[in-house]
Nucleic acid binder design. Structure first.
Length: 710
DNA sequence: ACGGATTCCACT
DNA sequence: TAGTGGAAT
């Protein structure tokens, strides 16, 4: 549900950039002879010519629409060029579009904070760039203004007949009488025009953009003049724009909420909302949504542009419509294997290119039950800790499926051991990987990473007898062997029967020293289902070695991808740990350290400088922390949300930053002073939060106050 | 018999 | 937490 983010006198410069019929452009770049022709991208050609998922503007002129079948498109536009989405493993393969999207993001992120909103859309916060330009190089001082900027559409700028539109635009941009906010937008126009030209030059893709004082308005504007144009919303034109705007056109109101607004409240345009007092809206839709509605009616939206260039999850799915529904367990297993293969491959690339690992595997399915009354019943989604390696993902996903299936058919159906039709059919399957966090580098993050993510590392950190035996077993195939990350295939195909519960619980738990078990078993890794995360440090090292070999030269480049990545804090939660193993021990155990140049140097420096103090006893530290935590619940969370932070604003480089509220204060206190300072500097001083969310402000200052932990 | 395939978010 | 539901492209 939408959530209000209050703002007051919002003088940000926000742009929303939207690629024009992106998939079509990607295909046209591959096949330049298609340029300028009516073209559509279609998937699954077998049935009625497949479904259209992207339509070029030339084709739209003929009335070709998305959600048409290929055959229909041919009827209204016989010349239309239909290009199929690439297929891999029997399913649509969108990787080409994903990487094309990344090309664009890497260009658009040059001038300010950039948020990848979807595969073909980004938001930019250009406030700083605009302020700088205004101070150093204001539009008025420019003798020449980009042709592209002059083609901008400025809402509310009346073009009298006979007047030269571009001249009007030029005048608006150069206007001396403009207030500060309009001048900022004028700078935004120039910056965005330049960015769009760079995108075109470097990728051959055109895009459209909206420029305004907040995300909502920028998004609205980007869609107003397409393709390959940009639209500006000066604040003086906001009311006029929203007054007559159909309510359903607003982002978030295209669904049930919008319908309810229309039918229950008689609200047909955003302007209609103005007559309702905030309390009334809250009454009807709850405080958050109510306030949000009240705000958007006035063009107010305080949502920040998150600095996030990479997706937060990866998924691979497929639907099996009608007669193609999957009716046997082996059929499901086959497709799950395909989906998991793709997912694993993408996780591997992500690890490789972005140094991130996912921590949760989720299976979604849709099913029907012909027999029973409650054929409406939803197939439950299930998740578990994600283990790297294709075979492991396949195995886990299959187990998740069977767990879901048992619930879905509700016992008794268990008789039909697998291959027989038992009245159910799977109409869609998907696997996804989420909770993707950067692989930590630097001091406490390492320790925290291991501590939070793995039980097995404790055993492998112990006397050597454990290391070889266990850690090797835990290595996903294809990882420790270096480069064959992608070659991993096939899970055992035999097990079609419902597995006995135990098969994926107890026996996957690595053995722990008794003392360690006592210390940790309650708090680490073991989930309700008895799943165990078995990423060991050796696994981590192996993965990194492998990726480093491949990507060594790319490390610095890749770091750029991480500006501000994962600076988003986890709401109101704070990590509680039971203790932090010595970083030095980790160092000793994993040598040579597999990180790339800058990391390891930083790390070594830190380690040397803090020799004694870094040896933090598990017990004592655990205690002091336990006492400290306000909430009694001893449930350490996974260490999540750390990231490279080359902060756009201050130009800091190659630093890993934790989300503020996840930094374990006692660990920070153990660090050398200069590191402490750096971490404190990572605290982003001001960030607007929704009025409903309890903020961390006081907590943080508490954490960083001079309280002594030891 | 759902336009798919994704991704993200908020709520519980 | 894990799981559900809604929304958007």
């Amino acid at each position: 549900m939408p959530v209000a983010k209050p703002e007051s006198s919002d003088s940000r410069v926000i742009a929303h950039v939207d690629m024009d019929c992106f998939y079509v452009q990607v295909e046209q770049r591959k096949q330049p002879q298609l340029r300028g022709l009516p073209t559509a991208v279609v998937q699954y050609n077998e049935w009625k010519g497949g479904a259209l998922i992207a339509v070029s503007y030339e084709a739209r002129k003929f009335g070709v629409k998305r959600s048409m079948r290929g055959a229909e498109a041919k009827e209204v536009c016989p010349q239309i060029q239909l290009v199929q989405v690439p297929v891999a493993r029997g399913k649509a393969d969108l990787n080409g579009y994903r990487s094309a999207g990344s090309e664009v993001v890497s260009i658009l992120s040059r001038r300010g904070r950039c948020e990848r909103a979807s595969i073909d859309e980004v938001y930019l916060d250009l406030t700083d760039a605009a302020e700088t330009m205004l101070a150093e190089n204001p539009p008025q001082s420019l003798e020449k203004i980009d042709e592209e900027a002059l083609k901008s559409h400025i809402l509310g700028l009346n073009n009298e007949d006979g007047s030269d539109i571009k001249e009007n635009v030029r005048n608006w941009i150069n206007r001396h009488s403009a207030d500060h906010r309009d001048k900022l937008l004028a700078c935004g126009i120039l910056i965005v025009a330049e960015l769009r030209m760079q995108v075109l030059k470097e990728t051959e893709f055109t895009c459209s953009a909206g420029i305004a004082h907040n995300k909502m308005l920028a998004k609205l504007a980007s869609g107003m003049n397409k393709p390959s144009q940009q639209t500006v919303v000066p604040s003086s034109s906001v009311n006029g724009l929203l007054n007559t705007l159909p309510i359903r056109k607003m982002k978030q109101l295209g669904g049930k909420l919008g319908i309810s607004l229309q039918t229950d409240m008689g609200v047909n345009t955003v302007g209609d909302l103005l007559q309702f007092p905030e309390e009334k809206l809250q009454e009807r839709y709850g405080v958050n949504t109510g306030t949000w509605l009240w705000n958007i009616a006035r063009g107010i939206s305080g949502e920040a542009v998150e600095g996030r260039l990479l997706p937060k999850s990866h998924g691979s799915g497929k639907t099996f419509t009608g007669p193609r529904a999957l009716k046997t367990v082996p059929a499901v297993q086959h497709w799950l294997n395909q989906l998991c293969e793709e997912l694993s491959e993408r996780l591997c690339s992500d690890l490789d290119q972005n140094k991130r690992m996912a921590h949760t595997l989720t299976l979604h399915a849709r099913a029907y039950k012909s027999s029973d009354s409650d054929s409406q019943k939803k197939f439950p989604s299930k998740s578990c800790p994600l283990r790297y390696g294709t075979a492991k993902i396949q195995e886990d996903a299959f187990n998740l499926f069977q767990a879901g299936l048992r619930e879905y058919i509700g016992f008794y159906g268990v008789k039909t051991q697998g291959n027989h039709y038992s009245g159910w059919g799977i109409t869609s399957l998907s696997v996804s990987a989420s909770k993707i966090v950067p692989i930590p580098s630097g001091t406490c993050s390492i320790a925290k990473y291991f501590h939070g993510q793995s039980t097995s590392h404790f055993s492998s950190m112990q006397p050597l007898d454990n290391v070889n035996g266990e850690a090797m077993l835990l290595l996903p195939p294809g990882v420790h062997s270096g480069s064959e990350c992608y070659s991993e295939v096939n899970s055992p195909k035999a097990e079609v029967d419902f597995p006995k519960e135990e098969s994926w619980t107890e026996d996957t738990v690595p053995e722990l020293d008794l003392q360690e078990q006592k210390d940790l078993s309650s708090s680490l890794s073991k989930t309700q289902d008895g799943f165990t995360q078995d990423i060991s440090p050796s696994l981590l090292s192996a993965c990194l070695e492998q990726s480093q070999n491949k990507q060594e030269s790319d490390i610095t480049k890749d770091e750029g991808q991480f500006k501000s990545e994962y600076n988003k804090e986890r709401k109101g939660k704070r990590v509680k740990d039971k203790g932090t193993p010595s970083i030095l021990e980790l160092f000793k155990s994993y040598n040579p350290y597999p990180f790339g140049s800058s990391f390891s140097q930083e790390l070594k420096k830190t380690a040397e400088g803090t020799d004694a103090r870094l040896t933090i006893g598990l017990e004592s530290k655990g205690h002091s922390l336990a006492e400290q935590s306000e909430v009694g619940k001893e449930k350490p969370m996974h260490c999540s949300s750390s990231g490279y932070g080359r902060d756009e604003g201050d130009g800091r480089r190659e630093a890993w930053s934790y989300s503020i509220d996840e930094i374990d204060p006692s660990v920070i206190d153990e660090l050398p002073p200069e590191i402490q300072d750096e971490i404190k500097a990572w605290v982003h001083p001001h960030k607007w939060r929704p009025n409903n969310t309890v903020r961390r402000g006081c907590k943080i200052s508490h954490y960083f106050s001079p309280t002594k932990k030891s």
